[in-house]
Design a protein around this nucleic acid. Structure first.
Length: 330
RNA sequence: GUUGGGAGCGA
């Protein structure tokens, strides 16, 4: 039976329902008794095709054979109904499964939540979300994605954003799909919040994620500004990827953007810590030339650093250069 | 027995 199930599923994945159905008939001919997996597979694929009728008749058939539909079967059917915009029927089926003592799981809830979102009924969607939490089921990445997308479609961008933050706070790392949805809807009105998102991820040490968001923003032809770069430089330094931070800095300069003093300081310190003194010297030169020294903060940092290392000659040199540049040490 | 169910965009 397992072998047949695998083959049936294979055909279903190809969308070849005919072959799947033939294989099913084959197994009956051979006197094999299909189990719940067999039926769920077929019900799912019929639902996907929009053939709810056939799905329902399979549901009857399995009941006639003494099999009892489980959560997976019902979830598949609920999804099918939602797809056909028969949300009322989907809800009815949901209640029926409750009555039968079946416990809906994350999949069931997410499917139904998505159904409500599709109809623009965010209120109902959140009600279900709360219900699932009350039942001890924690919403996962997909659940959040569905809700975020639902909000975005209603142009409730702020709430979508807040939810995304909550998701990160819950230690769920959103995947590319979620970002796409959110960013797609933020592109003209709210780039700052995406930068805030990157910052949040940097603070959590999720640099790969932060980079993903950055990439997506660039794919959307958004020209990065100095603020994101500063955030990313900070992030990479804090998470010990100094090379990346240094690359960001160079990229930034190429774009003619001006790094802020905070980013410069961390980067110089980090480069020194990593023993990348050539790079840090070079950077310092550039910074000193570029009159980016409002409060001589970079020089102060360099002096501190060199002083700690007992490199007094360098300290003196920096002080002398400051004076040459018209900056008086306080 | 690596056998079944949930999200976006694109076409």
């Amino acid at each position: 039976v397992v072998t047949y199930n695998s083959v049936i599923n294979g055909f279903c994945l190809e969308g070849n329902i005919r072959a799947a159905q033939n294989t099913f008939n084959d197994m009956l001919d051979k006197g094999l008794v299909p189990d719940m997996v067999t039926y769920s597979t077929l019900i799912y694929v019929y639902c996907k095709e929009g053939n709810i009728q056939e799905a329902y008749s399979l549901l009857d058939e399995l009941a006639g054979k003494g099999l009892v539909a489980d959560v997976i079967t019902y979830s598949a059917l609920i999804q099918g109904l939602c797809k056909e915009r028969r949300l009322k029927n989907a809800c009815k089926l949901f209640h029926k499964m409750l009555q039968m003592g079946l416990k809906p799981d994350q999949f069931t809830y997410t499917t139904l939540i998505n159904g409500h979102c599709r109809e623009g009924n965010i209120k109902k969607a959140f009600k279900l979300h709360n219900e699932m939490v009350k039942n001890g089921l924690s919403p996962d990445v997909v659940t959040y994605s569905v809700l975020i997308h639902g909000l975005c479609k209603q142009v409730r961008t702020k709430e979508a954003n807040r939810l995304l933050f909550r998701m990160i706070y819950d230690d769920l790392i959103p995947d590319k799909v979620t970002y796409d949805k959110l960013i797609e809807n933020c592109i003209d009105d709210n780039m700052e919040s995406n930068v805030a998102l990157i910052k949040g991820l940097c603070m959590k040490g999720e640099m790969i994620e932060a980079e993903k968001v950055f990439e997506i923003m660039r794919e959307k032809n958004w020209t990065p500004n100095d603020i994101v770069y500063n955030v990313l430089i900070h992030g990479y330094c804090k998470n010990d990827n100094i090379c990346k931070a240094y690359n960001m800095y160079n990229e930034m300069e190429e774009l003619g953007l001006v790094p802020n003093i905070g980013a410069i300081i961390v980067l110089i310190k980090s480069l020194n810590n990593e023993g990348m003194t050539k790079e840090s010297d070079e950077m310092l030169q550039r910074v000193m030339k570029g009159c980016l020294t409002p409060a001589a903060a970079a020089q102060t940092a360099m002096i501190e650093q060199n002083n700690e290392e007992g490199n007094m000659q360098e300290v003196i040199k920096i002080l002398a250069e400051m004076v040459d540049d018209g900056l008086l040490p306080n």
